[in-house]
């Protein structure tokens, strides 16, 4: 009983002391932020995922459906392959969108907008294309997304006064 009373008193005293310490001596800040501290941005990540979207879209379009009367194993294999292609396409499209939005909202500043008045429009349309590629199976939209990523790539590196040529891994 005495022990319980002592613990309660100790906690109250600790809280009181802590509050006074907080008021009198503000603590130093330890940053737990994202992006800001390192300032490392690169549209390459969006390019890789956009390429994956285009690749998977082409694979889905080119995938042969099992012929009528195909064995159950062939049908299962087809369903499995198609499901995996769709899952990867949607995942990569979402990643592309995330990467583009980070570039748009965190890297680009008002000063860049003066140089590129269509900056907002470019990113907005690119983000819309990511959504379209995620929802649909459209080679045309996937190719338009690659073109949008390329124009963002050129815009990005020109803000750094660096000539980085656009290339594809596939």
């Amino acid at each position: 009983m005495k022990n319980k009373y002592f613990l309660g008193f100790s906690m109250k005293l600790s809280n009181l002391i802590a509050q006074q310490i907080k008021n009198w001596f503000p603590a130093q800040v330890a940053s737990a932020h994202c992006d800001g501290p390192c300032g490392v941005y690169d549209p390459a990540s969006a390019r890789i995922t956009a390429e994956a979207v285009l690749s998977m879209t082409k694979k889905i379009v080119g995938l042969d459906a099992p012929a009528p009367g195909a064995s159950p194993a062939d049908i299962v294999a087809y369903n499995n392959t198609l499901s995996r292609f769709i899952a990867i396409k949607e995942e990569q499209a979402q990643k592309t969108k995330d990467d583009l939005l980070i570039l748009w909202t965190d890297y680009f500043k008002p000063v860049h907008l003066e140089k590129y008045p269509d900056l907002h429009d470019t990113f907005w349309k690119a983000a819309k294309l990511c959504s379209a590629c995620k929802v649909e199976v459209s080679v045309q939209h996937a190719e338009e997304l690659m073109a949008a990523v390329e124009s963002i790539h050129n815009m990005f590196w020109s803000t750094k006064d660096r000539d980085v040529s656009f290339y594809k891994a596939s």
Binding site: S10, L13, S14, I17, A18, I21, F25, P26, A27, Q28, V29, A30, S31, A32, H33, C34
Partner: peptide
């Protein structure tokens, strides 16, 4: 924090820091 930690805070071997941001969420 225990009472003894508050006492130790008076020593040069302990310092307080305030977390700013959400990168350590949900723990901090």
């Amino acid at each position: 924090c225990r009472f003894v930690d508050l006492i130790l805070l008076l020593s040069p071997f302990r310092r307080r820091f305030r977390v700013s941001g959400l990168s350590m969420s949900p723990v901090l």
